[in-house]
Design a protein around this nucleic acid. Structure first.
Lengths: 164, 164
DNA sequence: CTTGATATGTTATATTATCTCATCTATCAA
DNA sequence: TTGATAGATGAGATAATATAACATATCAAG
């Protein structure tokens, strides 16, 4: 398994939780959790990193789940729209949501060395942003908060390089 | 003049200030403020909105300052690298910096209705982000902070639509 | 003058994202 | 059961954004 989020964790149950939560919420909200959508989320959760739409498409294509870009983009649109995945604007890439069960204002830590992406909660930072925006008369619908830097695993001299 | 930042202001001196500041800092730091770079910044400052690289290229091309994408991207790389302009990741677009004289951690307010983009200072929000990142052992080099929403001029019923 | 560093010109191509139109499927009302 | 509707998928084409690669030019330092 390559490029986990920063901390070691039980990745099997992490994937299962993500899918279960999505399944449950789709059932509850009358959303169609179709095979492509389900598999797209499963791939994102399994890879546990930011994937480009075409990366995802490669996986889907290999499994006969669609071969053209719109297939991937539609699945991603669905996942992002309903909060099962997020888009990392800085990377033009997508990650499975780490907190699928809750309403949340996500922020991301992007490691420049190993490409790992971790999702953190940004409630306070978003609050400040919303406050200073509202002083300017601006209403915030969505906040993109992404930090680029160095993750704990790459702090040491022996920095992990992204695979070729 | 279309799509200013939210507040009315003396746009002439705003452009002049931007160019003067850039010129001064280039002189001081031994950077080459070449015609393409200067004109690129002037265009960004004049338009006073987020422009795509190809938008900028159209302007440059019309003036005989280069006709191929790398010309625009190189100029933008230079401007962004030295803080004279910023990239809005959410839009894959670029704006002239509004605070060229100071070191700053910028955040952006992006209006969904009229496409105006305002730059605000994000020192506090960035601070919070850096704090919570460092608790995770993550070192922040750069923070992308962009809010999407509705600007004061578009709050009223008669919302300004982006030009066709 | 020549060397090295930086900048520009140009062609081609890579990467990311959307449009369009046809078809299919699920749901629901009549 | 049928038909209507909305949502989802398939497939081809193309748009929009960004970079690679290589040649040439410019300029300051030695």
């Amino acid at each position: 398994m390559s490029r986990l989020a920063f901390d070691a964790h039980d990745h099997h149950s992490c994937i299962a939780d993500t899918l279960d939560a999505a399944e449950a919420r789709c059932a509850k909200s009358g959303l169609q959790f179709t095979p492509v959508r389900r598999r797209a989320l499963e791939i994102l959760a399994t890879e546990h990193r930011a994937m480009g739409a075409y990366d995802l498409l490669d996986h889907l294509r290999a499994e006969g789940l669609g071969s053209q870009p719109p297939v991937a983009y539609r699945a991603l649109d669905f996942l992002v729209k309903h909060g099962f995945a997020h888009k990392i604007e800085r990377l033009n890439a997508f990650v499975a949501c780490s907190h699928p069960d809750t309403d949340h204002s996500p922020a991301f830590l992007i490691c420049r060395h190993c490409d790992a992406v971790a999702e953190i909660r940004a409630r306070d930072a978003r609050g400040l942003l919303t406050d200073s925006a509202s002083k300017a008369g601006f209403t915030v619908d969505r906040a993109v908060i992404e930090a680029e830097g160095t993750c704990p695993n790459c702090q040491d001299g022996t920095e992990v390089q992204a695979p070729a």
